[in-house]
């Protein structure tokens, strides 16, 4: 039955959409707090997956402990990348045009991407294609006619928990509010004593941590290779659908994209799936550049 097929495709689209949403959120957090488009988001995801694999298989840690290790390690990678290379690049710039100053920073993230890919390739462990054990194993679950793996349920659950935690963090904590303030107006934030440099480190740390979580969730579903970071294109598409600005936008964008991609696979052809994110990015940028949820930015006079 076609309708069953589409229902199943929608359900698994929601699952992959959750992962896209996490990576999209990682990109958006960096963009909003530092104005930098992070082209290393995919490689951070890949690194998270491999750190998880190493922790789980080589060091034989338990799954929850592995989560903690990945988040802490990725947070450190993100924060250090901001603190050392990006701060150095920022310090050397000199031009009157703030937009031009961003180019070297964006290029630095591309560099980080290659660096991480190269570093992971050097580890002999990554020569073979591997697969991360899933968080939850066991017989698939039937919801009506829809079949979901336990890992799929785990992905949705982790995404929901992460999103709730982040909403609380940004909405109610001192640090979360200071991060938002810094992203809206760094100059004003600095002038009331918010340490902008530390805020940028926290933002990068959080973003890398999120990418790491996405890596752990996605790695059991994909073959792990140092190139698996290419999925970042899907996250970019998800973020752009959502307007590159909000948590809700990322989640909705991710899910729309996940479902859409599966529908394209069934209704058009499986080959067309790979092109979907690019077509979506182009359509959104042409028809509704602010995305579904973004507002056209308050222009500073």
């Amino acid at each position: 039955m076609m309708s069953d097929l589409l229902l199943q495709a929608a359900a698994s689209g929601v699952v992959t959409g959750c992962v896209y949403a996490l990576v999209a959120l990682s990109l958006v957090i960096v963009y909003k707090s530092t104005d930098v488009v992070n082209f290393a988001g995919g490689e951070l995801l890949m690194l998270g997956g491999y750190i998880g694999l190493l922790a789980l298989v080589y060091f034989e840690l338990s799954y929850p402990l592995m989560f903690v290790v990945v988040i802490v390690a990725m947070y450190a990678v993100g924060a250090l990348f901001e603190r050392i290379p990006l701060t150095t690049v920022r310090g050397q710039r000199y031009s009157k045009n703030a937009e031009a100053d961003l180019v070297p920073l964006v290029v630095a993230t591309i560099g980080l991407g290659y660096l991480l890919k190269g570093a992971v390739r050097v580890v002999p462990y990554t020569e073979e294609v591997r697969r991360l054990p899933p968080l939850l194993e066991g017989a698939p679950i039937f919801i009506g006619d829809v079949i979901l793996l336990k890992q799929d349920i785990a992905i949705i659950a982790v995404t929901v928990v992460v999103m709730i935690a982040l909403t609380g963090f940004f909405g109610w904590t001192r640090t979360g509010k200071a991060l938002r303030a810094t992203s809206q107006n760094p100059r004003a934030a600095a002038l009331i004593g918010i340490p902008v440099k530390s805020m940028r480190m926290i933002a990068w740390g959080l973003a890398a941590g999120l990418a790491g979580i996405a890596g752990i969730l996605l790695s059991p579903k994909l073959l792990m290779t140092p190139d698996m970071g290419n999925v970042v294109m899907l996250a970019f598409a998800a973020a752009i659908i959502g307007g590159f600005s909000s948590l809700v936008g990322c989640v909705v964008g991710g899910i729309i994209l996940g479902v859409l991609q599966n529908f394209v696979g069934i209704l058009i052809s499986p080959q067309a799936m790979a092109v979907t994110p690019f077509v979506v990015i182009m359509l959104i940028l042409v028809l509704r550049p602010q995305g579904l949820f973004g507002e056209l930015a308050f222009k500073k006079v």
Binding site: R180, N185, A188, L191, I192
Partner: peptide, 29 residues
Amino acid sequence: VRRGIIQVPEGREIFTAMSVEDNLMLGAW
């Protein structure tokens, strides 16, 4: 800032997408 020198910058340097009260409370960060 910690030593008590606070600048009110020129223009409208506020946190536009946050509430008035959040803006004020951030002053006491």
